[in-house]
Amino acid sequence: MKREVPIAITFISGVLLVIAFFIPHEPFGSLEQRFNDWYIIVSGFALILGIDSLLLHHWNKVSRRSKDWFHSLSLIIAFFVTLIWGFYSGIKTGHFLSAQSTFRQYFYMYVFVPLQATMFSLLAFFIASAAYRAFRADRFEAALLLFSAGIVMLGRVPLGNAVAPYMVGLVFLIFAYLLYSDGRKEVDPTRRYLKIGGAVLSLILIYPVGWFFLHYTAQTAGWIMNIPQLAAKRGIFVGIALGGIAMSLRIILGIEKTYLR
């Protein structure tokens, strides 16, 4: 009962949907519709499964007076205030999100939205700090990634064309300096001249490359998005789709049972 029934339910619901897809006639068509309808009802309940453990965890913290118990208490209070306010507004105005509902007017717009929006805007600071500290062009792949990121970032905003030549020029200048200082220490004369030659070439290239980005940064960003980026994403998602199909089959056939734990 505890294992066989769930596996049977999974098999029946999964297979039915696949059959209904290929044979959309009766009775499969309407069965599919009915199963979908049940799914709409049942999946709503799946959304709240995590909540009890959240509340329990914080209630334990409060009752044991452990560190930060006060914050746990504010979490629990916030939970019940939101719950009661939501239902109260709903009963009073017909729907908890109606235009007259104070839940929507005040709680949602001035408490929930600022909290959620600000929480996620912190990421802007972290990404800026990471740009400075973590994004190292120490391998070819990393350099390629950063270069593509830089062009897309500059190409998608106004002023990008005007600024990009300086940025690219700076990168070439650094590259020339590195080659030159490496070359000077080189003992083997051929490699020494190759490196110093490379440094000179980098310096010369600054002008034509700068000219190119002065005129075409935005187009280059568009090209990256529409051609190589698209190709790689398509390749990746084709792989994911194939993997998804394999996984779904394993679940339906009862080979994959981790969800029953």
Partner: peptide
């Protein structure tokens, strides 16, 4: 099991 089967299908 029902929601997982549906999602898989």
């Amino acid at each position: 099991a029902f929601t997982v089967g549906m999602a898989a299908g």
